[in-house]
Every structure is written in C-alpha cells, then in structure tokens.
Design a protein around this nucleic acid. Structure first.
Lengths: 191, 191
DNA sequence: GTCTATAAGAAGATAGAC
DNA sequence: GTCTATCTTCTTATAGAC
C-alpha cells in the first residue's frame, strides 16, 4: 500500500477510536512511519485527510449498492420475502450481515467514526442515516415494520459489540434466538 | 440556578453537540456570562466539569432506579407481562418512554454526549451499556427476546431522531405501527 | 518525498488586582 | 467571584535543505 493510502488507513483507525479532534497529525504520521511535515506532501491539511476518508467510503458503498441492485430491487416480491425463507436461510442472512459489519475492518472503523462525529456535522449524520436506516429498510407494501422487527435487534446488538467486544458471544446467541423467534412469529416454512 | 450549576448545564449542552474536545472553556464561560478564568473558581479544570456531569448523571439515574425498583422487581410475573397488557396500554408505555427520552432535555443531551465519547473512555461505554442495554432488558425466564423485540425498535427510532429531529413524526407513526404489530404477534388481549 | 527547524496560533490554566 | 493580563503547552502548518 502506498503512503497516501496508508495515511488514510491509519487516520481512520485513530479517528474511529478517539474522534477527529483528539487525533493529532503527528500521531497519524508516527503510525505511518514518517514525520508530520511529510504528511503535508500528500494532503493539504488535516481536514483533507478526513474528507478523503469520506470520499473513499462513498465510493465503496456506491459500488456495493450497485452490486446489490442486481438482486435487490424486486419490490413486488418484498412482502413475501421473509415468509418464503427457511429458518436456516434467515439465520444465515442475519449472521452473515452481523459478522460482516462487525468484523470487516473498514465497516467497523467507519461506523465508529460516524457514530462519534454524527452530531457535529449534518452531512455525516445524513451518511449515517442513509447507511444504517434508509438503505437497509424495505419500505414497500407492509413490510416496513417486519423489516424493522428483523433489523432493529441486529443493529442494536451491533452497537453493543462496538462498545464492548467481549459481549460478542452473548450477542451471537441472542442474535440466533432473535431470528428463530422472528421466524416463529412471521414465517411459514419450518425447515 | 447558581453559577456552578449553570456551568454544568451549558457544558453538557455543548458537549452533546460537539464532543468534549471541540468545546473550549471560553465557550462554556461565554454562555454562562462570565470569563474563562472565573470558571476556574468553580472547577479545578475542564475535565472536572465533565466528571461533575457524569457524577450528577449517576446520582440522577440511581434515584430513578430506586423509584423504579418499587414496582419493577416482580420477576415471577415478567414472563406474562406483555401478554397481560392491553394494546392501548402497550402503546402508552412505548410512547411515554420514547417521548420522555427524546424530549427530556437532560436525557437527550446526556445520551448524545455518551454516544460521542463512548469509544474514547471505557467507563463511559460501561455507563452507556448499563443505561440502554442492561437496565431496560428483562432477563428473566424467556422474556429476554420478547423484550428485545419490544425495545430494540424503540431504541433504534430514538437514535434516528437524535441524528435527525425532522424524522420525529415518521418515527412516532412507525413506533405505533411497531407496537401494534408487536401486540398482534405476542399479545392476547385485544383491547 | 522525507527530513529538521520553526513559525503561528489556539487553548488550558494561573497570577494578582478589585 | 469576576476581571485583565499573561504564561505555557500543544498542535497545525510552513520553509527550506537533502
């Protein structure tokens, strides 16, 4: 990875742990293995590093959305989507989503950074809401509440683990129990 | 309100909007109507203001918990608690909880401040988890998932409104729809 | 592109008069 | 308890050599 990208990477790590204001350029430079002034050959100033992270993220998620769009836009089938899935399939989807977002380094750091910075910058609040509210929710027909009932507990468990990673085993148990119960309440297929 | 308390109040407001590091002592002093150095007659340093907020919060919530304990510790009845309630009663509980936490100034500001600072300080993470995970959850018998299904969507809607207050009307509609659906899935009494 | 040296400014905190 | 003046430290950012 080139220096310019490594700066972004280390900066994101630090921002996600301490927040933008608590991270000093010298700290980022240290981690990259250069001195602070060298960093200014790659980025105009500290804010430009932050903005570059946001830009990169927007690009990544746009790409992800494009890939999703292939199979995710069949609105007519939405209302039946949960009933048609087997419990095992639902469990798989839940676990996959949960573990991916929890452990994928980029997602985890970016989510934590947004959590910290959301109230200071309306643009960041908008990005957060888009990623964790608007994008995941199926709003067609009457499935909005069903999706809320499926998704909100998963989101809730995710934020708990972000705060306290030691709770992950409990969260995974709870996640499974949640989805089984969800399937009992909403589902038709039993296996 | 005396100056010492007003400092706490203005500091909490600022911390909840911008985070600890982005708030300057001079800014707090300005809002109180004094100069920064005067502030040091009331608190040893900036951190002491923050700590005093945490202490005051701990005291408030401890008191609140004591009041709750009078009627909230009947574990044996927990498993039936949701079934025995009418839909209107459930709706009332949900709305009351949601609106109180959203609009009570102290709760709102304190929650936002914790959201911002949680990753920088394990103690704050612990407080957040205690307030929004451990305390609200009934862990007795098999009600844990049922409570999760009732509570997680409410918590989720709360965080959305913290980020974007304009979504409150939508959140209230969604809240009602959630609870009605919850009651349909879990409840027995219909009115 | 990286370094050392350093400027420029911000922010926390203290001294001492009133 | 509040003020003005000031100190000190920290942090961003630039200058200029290599």
């Amino acid at each position: 990875m080139d220096t310019k990208q490594r700066i972004l990477d280390e900066a994101l790590t630090l921002f996600s742990e301490k927040g933008y204001a608590n991270v000093y350029v010298g700290e980022i430079a240290d981690r990259v293995g250069i001195k602070a002034p060298s960093l200014y050959k790659h980025y105009k100033n500290k804010r430009a590093i932050f903005d570059a992270i946001i830009d990169e993220m927007n690009a990544r998620f746009a790409e992800q959305a494009k890939a999703m769009a292939v199979n995710g836009s069949d609105a007519a089938a939405d209302s039946a989507i949960y009933q048609q899935m087997s419990e095992d399939h639902l469990l798989g989807i839940g676990r996959q989503f949960f573990l991916y977002f929890l452990h994928d380094d980029y997602n985890r750091r970016f989510r934590k950074m947004l959590t910290i910075e959301q109230f200071a910058d309306p643009e960041l609040a908008g990005i957060y809401t888009k990623l964790y509210v608007d994008d995941p929710m199926l709003k067609t027909d009457n499935v909005e509440i069903m999706t809320l009932h499926f998704y909100a507990p998963i989101y809730y468990l995710l934020t708990i683990c972000d705060r306290d990673p030691a709770r992950e085993p409990w969260a995974l148990e709870t996640l499974d129990a949640h989805i089984k119960q969800f399937n009992r309440l909403y589902g038709r297929k039993k296996k």
